[in-house]
């Protein structure tokens, strides 16, 4: 057992004008995660502490927070590795309004997902009698890479472009657009131009190769998503090696 100091940003909309930090000391066994720490604090000390969690195995995307300033999932983050200068500092995701404590209003993020029209075009016709033939080539592998997205919104939180311009839907638009560009079954040819019209140019103007967003599921923002979209715009086959 090790004692950890959690410094957690709190906000109660009924009582607080602005968010503030509160510190908790908690004993955790070896290998315990930051999420385990929050659960223990809530169960034993502070019943009013609000945060989202579901799977505790990095597949549902509920628990993304900022830890020591960086957005990440807290369920697969060991408390031991999260200590910076003696404390674990936990804040809600950035670029969103706070509802309570670590819970933010994700509506702009979900709107960005929807903006990508994330479904196959033209869509279901008659009852299919057989599957499409999809050769497992480079595109198929690229699609597999972006398809692990868990919609945790960490990218939205750490995106420097959104911080400047809230009208840019965010990296998730690139990810979802790339996912369908790489899908041999999709017949929608205007995905890339639509993404551009939604403000992708703002992302491209930024120094894209130094995109600071670090996806918790390992999607490479430049290579796996926005370069796929850009290549499509420039008429190059998507998914080729960069």
């Amino acid at each position: 057992m090790t004692t950890f100091t959690f410094k957690i940003q709190r906000f109660n909309p009924d009582a607080d004008k602005a968010p503030g930090f509160k510190t908790y000391k908690v004993k955790l066994p070896d290998g315990a995660t930051v999420l385990d720490g929050l659960i223990k604090i809530k169960a034993e000390r502070e019943g009013s502490l609000s945060f989202r969690r579901s799977c505790r195995s990095a597949i549902c995307g509920s628990c993304a927070c900022r830890v020591n300033g960086k957005a990440m999932l807290i369920c697969d983050l060991q408390a031991q590795t999260a200590v910076a200068e003696g404390v674990i500092t936990i804040e809600p995701l950035e670029n969103f309004d706070i509802i309570r404590d670590l819970v933010v209003d994700l509506r702009p993020f979900w709107a960005a997902v929807e903006k990508a029209l994330p479904w196959l075009m033209p869509g279901l016709g008659e009852q299919p009698q057989k599957e499409y033939n999809v050769i497992p080539n480079d595109d198929f592998i690229g699609l597999g890479k972006v398809d692990v997205c868990v919609l945790c919104a960490a990218c939205h939180s750490d995106c420097p472009v959104i911080k400047e311009r809230r009208d840019w839907p965010g990296p998730i638009l690139n990810i979802k657009t790339a996912r369908f560009i790489l899908d041999a079954r999709d017949k929608d040819v205007s995905r890339a131009t639509r993404a551009m019209a939604s403000g992708l140019d703002k992302c491209l103007e930024a120094e894209q190769d130094r995109c600071p967003v670090k996806c918790p599921k390992g999607i490479d923002m430049a290579k796996d998503s926005f370069k796929v979209v850009r290549d499509k715009l420039q008429g190059r086959p998507a998914g080729i090696k960069l």
Partner: peptide, 21 residues
Amino acid sequence: RDIYELEHMGANFSRTPEGMI
């Protein structure tokens, strides 16, 4: 029929080298 429908919706099932589910 439900598998084929899911696949036509866009389910990204792993494939055989020949491109089938």
